[in-house]
Design a protein around this nucleic acid. Structure first.
Lengths: 221, 221
DNA sequence: CGGTGAATTATACAAGTGGACAATAAATTG
DNA sequence: CAATTTATTGTCCACTTGTATAATTCACCG
């Protein structure tokens, strides 16, 4: 047992690959065991690498944490934007529906991504960089939502659009957290249906049935 | 510097006082610096006590954490219920409004309480006891909300009430988190107004003006 | 008063943390 | 093919963590 463990084989890898691998390892560990599980040793082991290498690619563990958090947040809003951009601008209601619906399907609404978000979120309270990332990604998401709302066929009113965007964003966030942290508490597709009905009610519009989950037992309005 | 630090004076205190003091200290530290700041030494120092005493009142630090989390959650729902119970049952709309509004004033919506919630929430992912507390308090809150919704003057429909409760709960949670984590991003009373307007829209009702914040610049429906 | 036991303090410890740094292996360059 | 540089590994360290336990102080009871 006290025998010298044999040296890990020297494996050279591309710089980008290594950075991504370390970030992905950190995210996985945070998702699985919270931030306290994402130690330098655990991250290195998960990435198939020696702990010392982390400091070669990141000036500190904190810097790796920032990179991972930024990636998590940007990935999620990028996913929603991608779904939205698949719909032509001539149909603003469907664009909004696609944007909203994307938040309640994998890869956005999973226990994993909600877990990562939950693990990192409290770090924004004291770490100024984390707070800045949080604020920037939150506002970017909400601005995008507001622009989709402003494109709806209704009288222009920026103040109202802002309030509606805040409300819709709150509803989306709350349902996303609940669906992700208590996945067994809801029927399949239930959260998505509630989110679409809810945002439609908030905005006084109606979304096409095609964005709702399959077993279409929606009640009439 | 290496001089012997003088012994802390022996201060005897009631058992309840000590437990509450330790729980309060843990909550404060989590609110200020996240869970990693709530070490046994820091908690003891904040409570004006020696680290060893924690293990005299709690079998482990984990047990103290559970107690503190339970207290945080129960305090918040109790506050909302208290506000609600101040309104007679003959006015179900106002009772619901009072319940909702209580969530967007101190002591419920403060950076402190949102910070504690954020600091603890991810612990529910691996610790079964924390998960149970999370689920129990969440469901207790939502059930209360659902019963308030069911009391509204409208046709009885339990399935619809459930969906409405989930939606309203999501909106409340989302707005509460955003208002608490980005307190400078919103005007005074803005979140409360959006929450009342939002839940009213979700439920197809209208809340009395008296529950809205003072500078009443509400737009007509 | 003297003794018993609980409440409180102080000390000690094993395990784990992030970080510094030297040793090594491979790629690159001349 | 030698020299240099860079990527990667392994070792070490000072520090913190939660916990175990011994030493104190004090209230209470005979």
């Amino acid at each position: 047992m006290t025998a010298q463990t044999e040296r890990r084989p020297y494996r050279r890898e591309g710089e980008e690959k290594r950075r991504e691998g370390l970030i992905a390892a950190a995210m996985e560990l945070v998702a699985e065991g919270g931030p306290e599980a994402a130690t330098v040793r655990a991250i290195a082991a998960r990435a198939g690498v020696t702990p010392g290498l982390i400091r070669h690619y990141f000036q500190s563990k904190e810097e790796l944490t920032h990179a991972a958090y930024r990636q998590v947040m940007e990935d999620m809003t990028a996913e929603a934007m991608r779904a939205c951009d698949a719909i032509p601008e001539s149909d603003p209601v469907s664009r909004l529906a696609a944007f909203i619906a994307a938040n309640f399907r994998p890869p956005v609404m999973t226990t994993r991504s909600v877990g990562v978000w939950a693990g990192y979120m409290h770090l924004g309270r004291n770490d100024p960089t984390m707070h800045a990332i949080h604020e920037a990604t939150y506002l970017a998401y909400r601005d995008r939502l507001q622009s989709l709302i402003a494109a709806l066929p209704r009288p222009a009113d920026p103040a109202r659009d802002r309030r509606d965007a805040i409300a819709c964003n709150g509803l989306i966030d709350g349902l996303w957290i609940e669906g992700g942290s208590l996945p067994d508490g809801f029927a399949k597709g239930e959260i998505l249906r509630i989110a679409l009905d809810g945002t439609a009610a908030l905005l006084g519009i109606r979304f096409p049935d095609s964005f709702y989950p399959d077993p279409s037992d929606r009640k009439p309005a």
